[in-house]
Nucleic acid binder design. Structure first.
Length: 299
DNA sequence: TAAGCGTGGAT
DNA sequence: TATCCAAGCTT
């Protein structure tokens, strides 16, 4: 593996400068957002953004926070309410985990979203990315925030590879070594790396012609070679258990009172065993309840 | 550690 | 039309 020809210090200022002028105007970046919702707003937005695109999150975020503006408010909701409000954002277990995290914040932290990364990591549904995103973007602390965009930017700009390796613990240390010393600059650099990966250094059709760090990019300098792709591929969705689960939950979300006779749920699903398996697994996950031959969202 | 977990827009 | 991809987490 060749050493990077150009040290990161060369492209760090260019990236920060670009971000200062070109960053998208996203709701969670507006001052009034943090004024209103503080770290809770950041936490909710990050839960929604876990594997769901920005453009799909935006319309749901405001309604969610208007309904549950604090962890205490969230904690007093029922699982059925949060699963219904989650609507079609996907991966509905996240709604349950967010609800559980709110309860944990009330019980362990007096209703205040913690600032400490270890305390954040101990909350339901929060991993390396989300914990540091809250500590950095809401509290302004200096930590490496590494998401799929950041990994791709480092893979290309520093390593000269076309796609990043699968996520690894070492990613945190690598990003840490790139961070500016100043807390505010470090936070901006974290956000800027994500932003660059999201809008310029994209997975499929990178726009190198408008990239602010093109002059320092190892991958571009090498002529954008195809260096292979070790990323895990998603399993087929069509005909999967996931699709069945999605169908079951969609039916319950749309049903009056969020309840239906069990027999009527996905009655036309071609594979009866798969339908039953989907229902059982949803119950095991706490996303569904069975009672008297009826299925309902959990209370 | 690798697999499971939704949904819909882009290519 | 089929595949890719998205501010990941849990077990």
């Amino acid at each position: 593996m060749p050493r990077p020809a150009i040290p990161p210090a060369a492209w760090r200022p260019a990236l920060l400068e670009w971000y200062a002028h070109e960053a998208r105007d996203l709701p969670w970046r507006r001052p009034e957002f943090s004024d209103r919702y503080g770290a809770w707003g950041t936490l909710v937005s990050e839960f929604m953004l876990q594997q769901t695109p920005v453009t799909r999150v935006i319309p749901h975020l405001e309604a969610w926070l208007a309904r549950w503006p604090t962890p205490a408010a969230q904690a007093s909701a029922t699982p059925a309410e949060v699963v219904h409000q989650w609507a079609n954002l996907g991966y509905p277990r996240r709604a349950l985990w967010l609800h559980r995290a709110a309860i944990e914040v009330v019980e362990r932290h007096d209703g205040v979203v913690p600032r400490d990364v270890e305390a954040l990591l101990a909350l339901s549904g929060i991993g390396d990315y989300t914990a540091r995103a809250v500590a950095v973007f809401s509290y302004g602390d200096r930590h490496p925030v590494v998401d799929t965009n950041t990994r791709r930017v480092i893979a290309r700009a520093v390593d000269g590879r076309s796609q990043p390796a699968p996520p690894a613990r070492a990613d945190l240390a690598r990003m840490s070594a790139l961070l500016p010393d100043d807390d505010t600059d470090a936070a901006a650099f974290n956000a800027a790396a994500m932003e660059l990966g999201a809008v310029v250094c994209t997975a499929r059709s990178p726009r190198c012609e408008v990239c602010p760090i093109a002059a320092s990019c190892a991958w571009l300098a090498a002529g954008r070679p195809d260096t292979g792709d070790e990323r895990r591929r998603q399993a087929r969705y069509e005909g999967s258990d996931r699709q069945a689960r999605g169908g079951v939950l969609r039916a319950l979300r749309h049903a009056p009172d969020h309840r239906m006779p069990a027999d009527a749920v996905l009655a036309d699903w071609p594979d009866r065993m798969q339908r039953d398996r989907a229902i059982d697994s949803l119950i095991a996950d706490g996303l569904l309840e069975a009672s008297d031959g009826m299925l309902l969202l959990p209370r």
